[in-house]
Amino acid sequence: MIFRSILFAVVALLLYAAYVAYGNSSPKAQHTWQENIIRTQEYIYSDSLLKCDVVLGTSLTDKVNKDSLPKGVYMLTYPGFSVWDGLEVVKKAHGKPKYLFIEQNAILKPASPNFEDYIFNELNYYSKKHIPILQDAYQPVGQIADWVDWHSQPRVRFFSNYIFNPVLRVFQGDTIKTIDASEHYEQMRKLRNAVDTAIVRETFTRLKKEVDALQSKGTIVYFFGTPVHKEVYFNDQSKAIRAAFKQYMPAGQYHYLPDVNIAEYVTIRDQIHLNSESAKDYTRVLARQIAEARQNKY
């Protein structure tokens, strides 16, 4: 039974590999975390992408339209993760970007636990490098999800509209109770306002060391800030971050893309992510600044 099970699994893997190679499969991310993984695997397993200039950022920069950036620029921007995750990827993958653009806003956010290990532990790294169907982009569930979704939607819609929701409405009563999310946003505001000087010191000492090491190998590092709501831009944490950049990596010795006018941009309710219109505007600005930085204008 054991031998036959293993044999069956091997045959299934070979058949699936043939489907991925010759069928109509395409890379597919099932959720945000996996999107980050796929983006990283695409980068570390491609000799040509390893030579690209790289933008490191969080979900703030991820709002930028990747296709509108100049050619030869690859974005390691991770929603939910940190700039430090991207930095580790560039280092461990032996990436050779001539220009590296690092988002400043959320620099205090630490690297995500387990992310680096998942990408670079020997078993995962080499198996996924040499057997591409093992990469997260080709997981079978991701491949069939759209098809299942498309075919099940009418049934789900019918169930929801004609059975589930009418039953629930019986319990709703006259006044609909609502959730007060203001407390959550207040907590977020407090969190973003908090400044731990020890963490700031530790983070920037490490950042300076990492940047110096990269620059000594020929990479030119630029810092940039994405526009946020003025309340966030002027809170204690943001001010402390900007001050620390000035103190540890002064403008004369390190490179910065020009600041943007935050008043020209609109964020969504969380005050840190740009809305779709502003994201388009910022994409144009960032693309121009990157192009100019590559011509050493800054």
Binding site: R4, S5, I6, L7, F8, A9, A12, L13, P140
Partner: peptide
């Protein structure tokens, strides 16, 4: 065998 395939 199917479970093993999915684990991998």
């Amino acid at each position: 065998g199917t479970m093993l395939f999915f684990i991998v």
